[in-house]
Amino acid sequence: MLTYIIRRILISIPTIVFVSIVVFGLQLLLPGDPALALAGEERDPQLIAELRRIYHLDQPIWRQYLIWVGNVLQGNLGESIRLKMPVGDLVTAKLPVTMQLASMAILIATCVGIPMGIVSAVKKETILDYGANVVALSGISVPSFWLGIMMILLFSVNLGWLPASGFVKPSESLSQNLKTMIMPAFVLSSVTTAIFMRHTRSAMLAVLRSDYVRTARAKGLREPRVIFRHALRNAIIPVVTLGAIQLGELMSGAVLTEQIFTIPGFGKLIVDAVFNRDYAVVQGVVLCTATGFIFLNLCADLIYFLVNPRMRG
């Protein structure tokens, strides 16, 4: 088992190295001179020369990369030009907000998507199955930002039940925090709910056709016991690992959700940075998200290894 874990961790290292190259390479997409782009409206030659020196833009590209990677390895992701703060500090400050949003979304997706998938598989080709499939297809087709706007229209503007935007820290008021986060979390969970439903359904259908489920039924076990004790326990394994990967995807989806509901998280940080031409922040956020995603993939593989007896055997 230890050999597997070590091997799996070692495989992740080259991926992280290439991710760093991709993230660093983003700045090569900047049209024209990066120093001019960083200077923005300022066209002072002295400032531009200073920016070139600070950001090592006068160095060959490979040396620029090595300097950047060296700094990243020391925890220095650069400094935000606009906020005059280290990017690392900004990321650390915003990450918990997005993590809370993503965790709530994954909880909603689990509570809705998995039961829907079970019902859909057990009641295959009935109205319940068709209904669940329509919900799942809508989940992956309806843009989250439109769903968010429509929910604001219904629950905030028309019914007045929930606030349309804003964020309250849980330490200040947990109930207010939940009130501001429940709608964004529901919006963010829509795609994941659909994915959980579809995977649970197909895994359950495969398991329900297997010999051991037929044997369990032949032994006279009651249907709920067959479904929950025998079928679901095996069908849920790929969905559990999918959950870890989806948490990474939710970080991506949070960009739009945070923008609609004005939540000061990771996603809003990158969008604000884009409009402020704060490239160090953009690179920092992409690097952190990608590294987090690789880590979650690693966790997913390890969870799969731990929960699947055949893998350990």
């Binding site: 991926t15 991710v19 991709v22 993230v23 983003l26 700045q27 997409l29 900047l30 990474g248 995807e249 970080m251 991506s252 989806g253 960009v255 739009l256 990158i270 969008v271 940075a273 884009v274 490239y279 953009v282 690179q283 956020v285 992409v286 998200t289 990608a290 590294t291 995603f293 690789i294 993939n297």
Partner: peptide
């Protein structure tokens, strides 16, 4: 490894 939308946003930004 880079989430689709975040990478697309970053590229579009640059």
């Amino acid at each position: 490894a880079c989430p689709f939308l975040i990478l697309a946003i970053a590229m579009a930004a640059f």
